[in-house]
Computed example of a mutant assay.
Amino acid sequence: MANQHGDGAAADSRVDPRGDPFLGTRFVAPVRPATFLRRARLTGRLDQGLATPLTLVDGPAGAGKTLLVADWADRLDRPVAWLTAEARDQAPGVFWAYLLQALRAAGTRLSPGIGSPAHAGSVEKTLLARLAADLSGRATPAILVLDEFERVPGPAIAEQLEYVLRHAGHGLRLILVTRSEPLLPLHRYRAAGTVTEIHGAELAFTPAEAAGLLDVHGMRLGDDTVRALVRRTQGWAAGLRLCATATAVRSRRRSPTGPPPATGSSPRAPWSTTWPSAGSSPACAPTARRNCSPVCRPTPTARSRASSSWPARWPTTTWSTA
């Protein structure tokens, strides 16, 4: 049963203001796949972000935002609260109930006097003030990751979040993972130098990182080939993974022992490349075509703000038998 005693009531309820049980999976960071590649230049930026109250990881779908932050959080020597946002969080009471539960699930000690939201559609400012005051007194800041924050687009929650972040002072480090810039007063944070930002252009794989990613997929390609692939995909993480996966599947079908290692960028290297019309990516089998947009079917709505356009063409790949 939902809390019926107001925002000052005991905060140990196991249900949200709508009376639904909290979903524990939303407090857990996703597991990295076996082919995940750690990128030191970006984890280093996240480490630096602990010196600022706000860190913004902002990029298009498939850019590797969530796995990047999940891997970084898993390696820290302190607890990290994780909350994956959902559309139902647009109700302020539900959002804050889940945020408080995420902090507690990570072991953050919060005063019982903070309470919990009593109503799904609203949260009392006194509760937010109690939370900010409680966090501000911490010797070690609480670290909170809000993943897929674009699902909570309303200005009311953004204003409330900024209020808590501002008054929590040193006691809170907030990492927002999102596909679009949140409705926070980012200009103030930028002017004060109190925000760390990682945008789509920085999330793009460099040729060296792409070579490493392909290597963990069992593919060793020449430098020229890797650079060409990065140019065509613009370093888009999902595009590189789709290409690697699709090519590995094709190669296994052609040879039971798998493709030979690349010997360089000569025409006889095992990765031969042609540039057909858009939509003919090797990953674009009929059952998978819908999953590899925007590379195979570029549209204006799928474009990253960090790039003028997505690749209009994609390489078809074949393994040389010579």
Rank of each mutant, 00 (worst) to 15 (best):
Pro155Glu: 13
Ala246Gln: 08
Lys125Glu: 09
Ser277Tyr: 08
Thr273Cys: 13
Val177Glu: 06
Ser293Tyr: 08
Val31Thr: 14
Met1Arg: 09
Arg254Ile: 06
Ala81His: 03
Val123Arg: 06
Glu86Arg: 15
Leu203Gln: 05
Thr257Asp: 14
Thr317Asn: 10
Ser13Gln: 11
Ala118Val: 01
Ser308His: 11
Val295Trp: 12
Glu148Gln: 14
Leu176Val: 15
Met219Tyr: 07
Ala102Tyr: 01
Pro17Lys: 04
Pro256Gly: 03
Pro117Ile: 01
Ala238Phe: 11
Pro286Glu: 03
Arg250Ile: 12
Arg75Gly: 04
Leu50His: 09
Leu42Gly: 08
Ala63His: 00
Ala63Val: 02
Ser116Gly: 04
Pro33Arg: 06
Glu202Leu: 12
Ala285Val: 08
Gly113Ala: 15
His5Glu: 12
Val94Asp: 00
Gly62Phe: 03
Thr301Leu: 12
Leu172Pro: 01
Leu46Asp: 01
Gly93Lys: 03
Leu176Met: 06
Thr178Arg: 05
Ala192Trp: 04
Cys296Tyr: 03
Arg241Asn: 12
Thr263His: 13
Gly171Ala: 07
Val177Leu: 10
Phe27Asp: 01
Arg254Lys: 11
Thr287Gly: 06
Thr245Gln: 13
Ala87Lys: 10
Arg18Asp: 13
Ala40Lys: 09
Gly44Arg: 10
Ser180Pro: 01
Asp74His: 06
Leu186Glu: 07
Cys284Ser: 15
Leu37Met: 10
Pro315Trp: 10
Gly44Ser: 10
Ala278Asn: 11
Asp20Arg: 15
Leu221Pro: 02
Arg130Asp: 11
